[in-house]
Design a protein around this nucleic acid. Structure first.
Lengths: 187, 187
DNA sequence: AACACAAGTGGACAACACGTCCAGTTGTAC
DNA sequence: GTACAACTGGACGTGTTGTCCACTTGTGTT
């Protein structure tokens, strides 16, 4: 993760920044967190932040990274139905369920990523795209390309937040709806 | 639309602001348009803008309003399959096709709305929600609430832009994918 | 036609966030 | 212990925001 030869003070500040940012994203509006906020809260200067992160979104992405990688590894090598082995429709439903779990646990961070560059331009989105695309192909869908983004759109943090906190839906209800979507797409 | 007793100069400035904003949204990055830009480009002061519009998003929403109302009226009272009469699955597909048309024609404006308050908090979203919900109910879906936002998520301007200009997909391909989605949801 | 009032207007203002720059400091290798 | 490179922190200039207030301009009345 960190460069091989990272100075001790740099590592210390990196940890401070990440801890402070995590706190800020959780306790205040994730879309309103600024670079200034993080710098002040972490007790470091602004240039120290900009050295590694171009914007707040990338800080949120860094915090999210390890959690997303766990899901990614379970997708590629884990047990079915999330991992390989189950029918595509079931794998897609399992993927949705895993993503709802991620959204429920780390919604502030995921909203924070969106506030920056936008989730469509983030590396992880390409991974999810490739996975869903492979499921569509395995399911016999002729033109999977346009369907990929359609299938991923409901996982936008904004949408999940709206469902949870405006509509008042439960994670279980959302998961059920997405399971129905999975079945509908890969009938 | 305008208050009954709107002063002549106010009406003139309203028109100037809307024309200038429309131009700006189309010719530059819709997410980078500022209140300053619009004010300067329209030749009015900043307070004149803030009198009627709290942010750039609401200006874009005002410009979009009449175009959206046309679709809304066709949904409620137009000919099938967009209007009443056709089976729910076909009506949903027709709705998707109409929205793709709207996105294709007015993408800059719709991205501009998103840059402001966000499309989920805009009045029109509630209308689309109610319409899709009624289609789901008519189609016999037991728990339509969570599916509504799922079904509308692929219509996010961000998603459409990504499909068109990053993936290089055509409006027809996107419409086809959404038609499949409609069939899958309301099988 | 002149008046009075309310509605409308424009620019100034302070606060804030951004991204960069540079001089000083602190680790690390020799 | 010394020298170098990496790292750091705060200051700086720019641009945007939202509000405030004095002025202007329409409109209805006498």
């Amino acid at each position: 993760m960190a460069p091989q030869s990272e100075r001790a003070d740099a590592a210390r500040n990196r940890a401070r920044v990440l801890a402070a940012a995590d706190e800020l994203f959780r306790t205040s509006d994730p879309r309103a967190v600024t670079m200034d906020d993080v710098a002040r809260s972490a007790g470091v200067g602004r240039a120290t932040l900009y050295r590694r992160y171009p914007d707040v979104g990338s800080i949120a992405a860094a915090l999210l990274d390890e959690h997303e990688r766990i899901v990614q590894e379970r997708l590629m090598g884990g047990a079915p139905p999330l991992g390989p082995g189950a029918p595509p429709a079931e794998r897609l439903a399992a993927f949705y369920a895993a993503m709802v779990e991620l959204l429920e646990t780390h919604l502030p961070l995921m909203l924070g990523v969106d506030a920056g560059a936008g989730r469509l331009r983030v590396g992880a989105y390409e991974f999810w795209s490739a996975h869903v695309r492979s499921l569509l192909v395995a399911g016999g869908v002729e033109e999977p390309d346009a369907l990929v983004d359609v299938a991923l759109a409901p996982l936008a943090p904004e949408v999940y937040q709206h469902q949870r906190h405006v509509r008042g839906l439960s994670p279980a209800e959302i998961t059920t709806a997405l399971a129905r979507l999975a079945a509908g797409i890969l009938a």
